[in-house]
Computed example of a mutant assay.
Amino acid sequence: MLKRNTKTKQLILDSLKNSKSAVSQDILLKELGDKVDRATIYRALNSFCDDGIAHKILSDDGKYYFAFCVNCSEKAHKHNHYHFRCLSCGKIECIPNEIEVKLPVGYQSVNFNGFISGYCANCS
């Protein structure tokens, strides 16, 4: 559920939902044109992560990408899966298989950032 909803945040969320892959702030800025400014996109994307609507991915190119969450909530935000960036087309995808990382006794995981780069099925 979208907290503190505005028309602008809804526009950004709709773009994120309709994306076929994870998107960066720059991608959304190009897509939305002059409808939304850079700072608003940045704040909205981060609030979506806080609300369990999206998750943030740190790519091997140093940029953050955002993907719409499926089956997540603010209290149960699960995205222990790999992300894949195609070196040819640049598409970033969530690989749906959940990963179980066994940590030593006493350790608690807060974040998982598994990243693979290579060539997607369309480009290989």
Rank of each mutant, 00 (worst) to 15 (best):
L2K: 10
N5Y: 08
T8N: 05
K9T: 11
K9C: 07
I12C: 04
I12Y: 01
L13D: 04
L13M: 09
L13V: 06
S15F: 07
L16C: 09
N18L: 11
N18F: 06
S21P: 00
S21Y: 04
A22N: 04
V23E: 05
Q25V: 13
Q25G: 07
D26C: 05
D26E: 15
I27K: 10
I27L: 09
I27F: 12
L28M: 05
L32D: 09
L32C: 08
D34C: 00
R38Q: 15
R38F: 13
A39W: 09
Y42P: 00
Y42A: 11
R43S: 15
R43E: 13
A44T: 10
L45P: 01
N46A: 02
S47N: 13
S47D: 14
C49P: 03
D51C: 01
D51F: 05
G52L: 03
G52T: 05
I53R: 02
A54D: 04
H55E: 06
H55M: 05
H55C: 04
K56G: 00
I57G: 03
L58D: 02
S59P: 04
S59L: 06
S59E: 00
D60Q: 00
D61L: 01
G62W: 04
K63V: 03
F68T: 09
V70F: 10
C72D: 07
C72A: 08
S73E: 09
K75I: 12
A76N: 15
H77D: 15
K78P: 02
N80M: 09
H81N: 15
H81T: 12
Y82W: 10
H83R: 11
H83I: 06
R85C: 04
L87A: 07
L87Q: 15
S88H: 14
C89N: 07
G90W: 02
G90N: 05
I95Q: 12
P96Y: 06
P96C: 05
P96S: 11
N97C: 09
E98V: 15
E100V: 13
K102N: 12
K102L: 13
K102E: 14
L103C: 11
P104N: 10
V105R: 12
V105L: 12
G106F: 07
Y107R: 07
Y107D: 10
G114H: 00
F115L: 01
Y119N: 13
C120D: 00
C120R: 02
A121I: 12
A121D: 13
A121H: 11
S124R: 14
